Amino acid sequence: MAVTEIDQPALASLPWLEASKQRLLDQIAQQRLPHALLFSGPNGIGKWQLMRWLSDRLLCASPNAEGACGQCRSCLLIAAGSHPDLLILEAEKNTIGVDLVRQAIATLSETAHQQGARVVLINNAQQMTESAANALLKTLEEPGQSAFLLLSAPSAGQLVATITSRCQEHLVALPDEQLALQWLQQQGVTAELSHLRLNGGAPLRTKQFIDQQLHNKLDAFLVRLLAVVNGEPPAKELIDDAVADFPASYHWLSALLLDLQKVIAGLQPHHLMFSRHWTELQAIADRLHFQSPDWAPWLSHWQPILAASGLNHSMQWQAMLLELQDKLAQPQQPLLSSR
C-alpha cells in the first residue's frame, strides 16, 4: 500500500551510492540489518532511491547479489504500486500526522500478505508531529519479525532523541564534486561548479535546478545585481525577478556577498561560488580598500522582512538594494547602525 510516490532517477544511475548499497548488502548477508534505519544526509543526494532499493530487496522473494530480482510476484506488485506489505508515508500539508503513523503501525503488526517482510518508509521523518513521533516509539523498539521501518531526514538532529535512539543511522554523504558533475553531464545536464555548490553539492537538486531553467534566471539576476553594487539604480526586472524567485533570489544575493568577503580576504577564484564574476568582485573589493564587512547580521535582518506576508515585497527588495548600495559606499559604518 503506497500513500505517495516520488519520481526520481533509479538507484542504479547514482554511482556515489554504491558504497552505501554494499554496506546494506553486507548487513543483510550477515543478518545484522536493524529493523529501524534512519537514512540521513542532505536532500537531493539519493536517500529516497536508497530506501526504495532496500525496501525492494527486503520484499523480493528471489533477491540476487545486486538487490531485488524485479521478476517475482512481490517485485511485480511493487512495480504496480500495489504491494500489500509496503507502506510509504509522506507529509500532508508539511506534516506527518498521527493517523498516518497509525497506518504504519498497523502494517507492521499484521501478518505479511506475501509471506515475506513488511516494510514502512517514512520520507522526511522530521515532519512528524509530536504525537506521531510518540505513537511510533513502541513500534521502533519492537517492530515484529521481518518488519522494517526505514526513515529519512536531512540530519538526525532534526528528529527527537527518542526516535533517533531507537534507529541505526545510515549517513548518506555528498559525492565528490567532479563525480557529481560527471554524472550530471551523463544525464545531459550542462551544469557548472557554481550550480552544484549553490545547491549544496547535491546532484539531484542541481539537476532539478537546471531542468527548471533557474540557472538562466541566476545569470540574469547576478548581472543586474552587480550593476546595483556598482551604483546603478535597481532595475525593475531585477526586483520583479527577485520577488518571483524568492527565496532562491535571497540565497543568490547572500552567496554573492559571501564571495565578495572571500575576495576581500584574499581567496582565489576556485574558492568562490561565482568564480566567473571574479574580475567584477575584485574591482569592488579594490574600491572598498579591501575592508571586509560581515554581511550575516544584515542579511538576517532582511530575510524575515522579505518572507513576511502582507508586505509589498517589491518595495522591500528595492529598499534593501538601496541600503546595500549605501553600505557599500560607506563600508566603515556598522551594517545595522540605523536599526
Rank of each mutant, 00 (worst) to 15 (best):
G67W: 12
P84D: 09
T111Q: 09
A117W: 05
L86K: 02
L87Q: 08
E90F: 03
I78C: 13
E110S: 14
T107E: 07
A68N: 09
V119N: 06
L89K: 07
G81C: 02
N94W: 09
C69L: 11
A91C: 06
A80Q: 15
C75S: 07
A80R: 15
L86E: 13
G116A: 02
G67A: 10
L108K: 13
L86D: 07
R102T: 09
L89Y: 07
E90P: 00
A91W: 10
H113P: 00
G116R: 11
E90K: 15
Q115V: 03
A68Y: 10
A91V: 11
D99C: 04
E90R: 14
V120S: 00
K93Q: 15
A104T: 02
S62D: 11
A91M: 03
D99E: 15
A79C: 00
D99Q: 14
V101N: 04
G97I: 01
L100C: 04
G97S: 05
S82Q: 14
H113S: 14
N64L: 07
E110P: 00
T95Q: 13
L86N: 02
S62C: 04
L100D: 14
A104I: 02
C69R: 06
Q103W: 05
V101K: 08
C69H: 08
Q114N: 05
A80D: 08
S109V: 01
V119G: 06
A68M: 04
K93R: 14
E110N: 11
C69Y: 08
N94L: 12
C72M: 01
L87D: 02
L89C: 11
C75I: 12
G81N: 04
V98Y: 11
A106Y: 03
S109A: 15
C72F: 02
E110V: 02
E110K: 14
G116M: 06
A80F: 08
A91E: 12
I96A: 07
I78P: 00
L108Q: 12
Q114T: 09
H113V: 11
V101F: 03
G81T: 13
D99Y: 10
N94F: 10
C72E: 06
G70C: 00
A65R: 14
P63W: 08
E90A: 11
L108F: 11
A106T: 13
A79W: 01
Q103P: 00
P63S: 08
I88R: 13
T111A: 10
G116V: 05
E110C: 05
L77V: 09
I96N: 05
L77A: 13
G116H: 06
T111D: 00
G116T: 02
V120K: 01
V119W: 04
S62P: 00
A80K: 14
C75A: 08
N64H: 15
I78T: 13
A61P: 01
Q71T: 14
S82G: 04
P63T: 11
Q71N: 06
K93T: 10
Q115S: 12
S62Q: 10
I88T: 15
L76S: 09
C72V: 08
I78V: 13
R73Q: 13
